[in-house]
Simulated scan of single mutants.
Amino acid sequence: MRSYTVGHTKIQYFVAVVMVLGAGLAGCGQVSMPMGSNNVDTPTLLTGSIASSTDVAHSDISEEDRQIIAGNIDAIGPDLDSGHAPEGLTLPWLNAVSGNSGTLTSIDTAALASTGCVGFKTTANTIAGIKLYQGTACRDVTRKFAVVTLTVADA
Rank of each mutant, 00 (worst) to 15 (best):
D55P: 00
E63A: 07
I68M: 04
N38W: 11
S32C: 00
V31I: 04
D55T: 04
D41T: 08
M33L: 02
S32Y: 06
S53M: 14
E64F: 02
V20D: 03
G29Q: 03
K10Q: 12
Q67R: 10
T47I: 08
A26Q: 02
A51P: 05
Q12T: 14
P43G: 05
S52K: 12
S37G: 04
L25E: 05
G27Y: 10
S62K: 01
H8W: 12
I50E: 09
G29N: 08
K10D: 12
G24C: 02
L21S: 06
T44E: 11
I11C: 08
T47H: 09
S49T: 06
T5W: 10
A16Y: 00
Q30P: 00
V40I: 14
T5Y: 14
A57F: 02
Q67T: 03
A16V: 07
A51M: 04
A57I: 11
H58D: 09
S62I: 03
Y4C: 12
V18K: 03
S59C: 04
T9M: 13
G27T: 07
D41I: 11
S37N: 05
D60N: 05
L21N: 02
Q30A: 05
V6I: 14
P43N: 02
S37M: 08
D60V: 08
V20W: 00
A51L: 08
A26G: 06
M33H: 01
S52A: 06
G29E: 02
N38H: 12
H8F: 13
S37L: 11
D65W: 04
S32P: 01
Y4S: 13
Y4H: 13
Y13D: 15
E64Q: 07
E63W: 00
V6E: 12
S59T: 14
M19N: 08
G36E: 14
I50L: 09
V18Q: 03
Y4D: 15
I61W: 01
L46H: 06
A16F: 01
G29R: 06
Q67E: 13
L45Q: 13
L46D: 07
A16K: 00
